[in-house]
Each structure stands twice: as structure tokens, then as C-alpha cells.
Simulated assay, not measured.
Amino acid sequence: MTRWIGQNRGFAAALALFLALYLSYHLMHPRGFSTAVLVQNSNELVAIGFVAMAQTVPVLLGGLDLSVGAIMTLAACVASWLLDGTPLQIAFGMIATLAVGTAFGLLNGLIVVYGRLQPIIATLATGAIAIGLALLIRPNPGGNVDGDLNWALTNSVFDFAETYGIGQDGEATWLAPFVNIPLPLILLFGMACLVWLPFKRTVTGRTIYAIGSAEGAAFASGLPINRARIAAFTLAGFFAACGGLYLAIQTSTGNADVVQAGAYTLNSIAAVVLGGTALLGGTGGVIASILGAMILRAVSFYFRILDIDPLLQPLIEGIVLLAAVSAVAFRTFRVKNQLELFR
């Protein structure tokens, strides 16, 4: 355990901070550790969690993706048109929504690789395009998402099973230990485990880490640099689309909100840093960024329970983020050789 903490100090510190914040929050909450509170908190986490996942992959390369919030917004607007009708139509709508986000991510990767533009510039431009398309699709907030889908995916496992008639004949007794788990958490961590963890172990996934650690060495080793860059931004677009898809299901609407898109992008960067992923690239991961997003949301939970003036909330959030980022950055001041950052 001591060795693991030494090798993952950023993640360990983030985990300790989250546990301290969240446990004390629940101790102060009138309803404590109830399923209803856990479901509510989980619903507030999922969208920022997916966008943090999206931001993580380009950051591992040593770059930033400023389009993740815009892609999420575009995906939500697309989903608000398509997630209604028969089960087949809903399934098609989900696939189409994810395809739109993935295509935008692929576009980002192609521009960065073959256009030879800095990621921050390329994604700033494509993010503006995504918001423009979102405004064409939804000039005003609106849409219609299947009611059963909304209820089933934004509540506990029990509600999901009840909505779709799973286990009503008593044959699904294996489901009993999981009925109180919020389904939003299963969706978030399930996507991370099913998509990111297998990808991370591929040659392309390892190349992403190698580029962030030492791009020259990765190139000299014959690793597929271009393929890894394109894959990183494509995966970022996919995760951002997952966030938009869930946001549409959660709110049953689409809204091409420019301010919201910008806020999610900035919060995604904050979540990545809070989770212990280095902005220099090469170290960290998606799970750590989800933890960073959980810290961000845990801070916001206190605003409700302590009834803090909304005018003071941005100030408090800024102070917390500055303190956390400074703590992470403090390590770099003690480094004499940059290679030590990746050990």
C-alpha cells in the first residue's frame, strides 16, 4: 500500500480529499446516506464526469481540447431530437448522437495531425463550429426524450429494473444486492472500464502516454505517433458525446447554451488537474479525472447544505481550485530534472 501511494501520490491525495469532503457532507445532510441523496449527487456528476474523461486523453498527449463542452452541447441537442419513439428508434438515436461527437473528435485529430496546428487553437475553432451547429438544431431549448428512458437511467438499479420489467417474476435474485446503487454511477464508471481500460493497454493507448512523457523518444522508438494523436482526440469526442447524451436524457431537452459549454470545458480541465493528471502529459488517466470531477461536485454540494450566497459561490470555488492546483504544481518547483515528473 505504501508503495502504491508513493507511485500514485496525486491520485491518492485526490481520493483522500474527496472522501473527507463527501463523508463530512453526508454527516451534515439531514437525510444522510440515503439512496435518494446518492442518486441526486450521481446525476449531478455524470455530465462533468464524461467531459473530464474527454479532456483527459488529449491532456495525456500534452495538449488541451477546448471543444469538449461544445461537442457535449451539440450531442445533447442531437439527442433531444432523436431519443423518442420505438426502442429501435431510440437505439438509433443513441448511436447517431455518439457518432456525431466521435466524428467531431476525429476532425480535431485530423486537423491537429495533418494541419499541424496546436490542439488548443484547432479545438477552439471546431468548438465554435459545434456550437454553431447546436444553435441551428436548437435555436431555442426544447426536445422530447422518452419518459421511461429518462426515469430508468437517472435513478437507482431498482427503478431501472422496475421500468423495464426485469426480475418481476422473481428469477433475478442476483439483482437484489445492487438495487440501491445509482445507475448514473454504473454508466459513468462502466464506460470508463469498458472503453478506456482496454484502450489504455493497446499499442495506441501506450503511445499516447509515451508522447506526453517524451515525444522525441516515442518517435525514435517507431511508435505510431499520428495514429495515437488522432485516436486521442477521437476518443475525447466520443466521451464528450456520452456526456451530451446523458445530459439530454437527464433534462429531457436540448439547449445550445454557449455559457454552459464554456463552463463544462473549464471545469473539465479543473477536474483533470484535481485528479492528479499532469498537464504536461504522460501521467494520469480517466479514472483519476472522474475522481477530480467528484471533488468539484462535492464542493458544490456544500453550497446547498450550508446555504451559501450564490454570489459567493464562484469565489469559493475559485479559491478551492487555486489551492488544489497550487498543491499539484508545488511538486514541479522541487524538480531539477523534468524526467523526474514521469517516474
Rank of each mutant, 00 (worst) to 15 (best):
Q7P: 00
G275T: 13
G243T: 10
N226W: 12
A176H: 02
V46Y: 12
I211A: 01
V259M: 05
Q40I: 04
L64Q: 07
V39Q: 05
G105W: 06
L312A: 14
G276N: 01
V51K: 02
L27C: 00
A232F: 02
F239E: 09
A236C: 11
L107A: 15
G143V: 12
V51T: 15
M28Q: 10
I129A: 13
Q55S: 14
V68N: 04
F303P: 10
G167H: 06
G63T: 08
A125G: 14
F160M: 10
T173F: 04
L341I: 11
R31A: 13
L194Y: 03
R3D: 13
L185W: 15
G292Y: 07
P58D: 12
L88G: 06
T126R: 10
P30K: 11
L306V: 14
N267Y: 13
V328M: 06
L291S: 09
R343L: 09
A75E: 05
L311K: 13
A278T: 09
E171Y: 12
L274N: 12
A75N: 07
C77Q: 11
W151L: 15
Y164T: 11
E162A: 14
I290T: 09
A228M: 03
S156V: 12
N144A: 08
I287Q: 12
D65T: 03
V299L: 15
N226R: 14
G32V: 09
R304V: 11
D309C: 05
P30S: 01
I48N: 09
A210N: 05
T253M: 06
L296Y: 08
R9S: 13
G237A: 09
A263K: 14
L136E: 00
G318K: 09
G292N: 10
I5L: 14
L38T: 06
A128F: 15
H29I: 02
N8G: 03
D65Y: 13
W81D: 06
R9N: 08
F238A: 02
I269C: 05
I120R: 02
A79G: 10
A271V: 14
N144P: 01
D257C: 05
A218K: 04
W196P: 00
S252L: 05
T251P: 04
G282L: 13
R229T: 12
Y25K: 06
A122E: 13
W4N: 04
P87G: 12
L23R: 11
P184E: 06
I208V: 15
L149Y: 07
V179K: 15
T154K: 04
G143W: 08
G62K: 15
V259G: 02
C193G: 10
L322S: 08
G62R: 07
I208H: 04
G85R: 09
F33D: 02
Q313A: 06
V51D: 01
F158D: 05
Y264S: 00
L306Y: 07
G101K: 00
V157T: 15
I131W: 03
A122G: 08
N155Y: 11
S156H: 11
S300R: 13
T97C: 07
V51C: 07
V37I: 15
L247H: 03
L23P: 00
A329I: 03
A20P: 00
G167A: 09
P184C: 06
M72H: 05
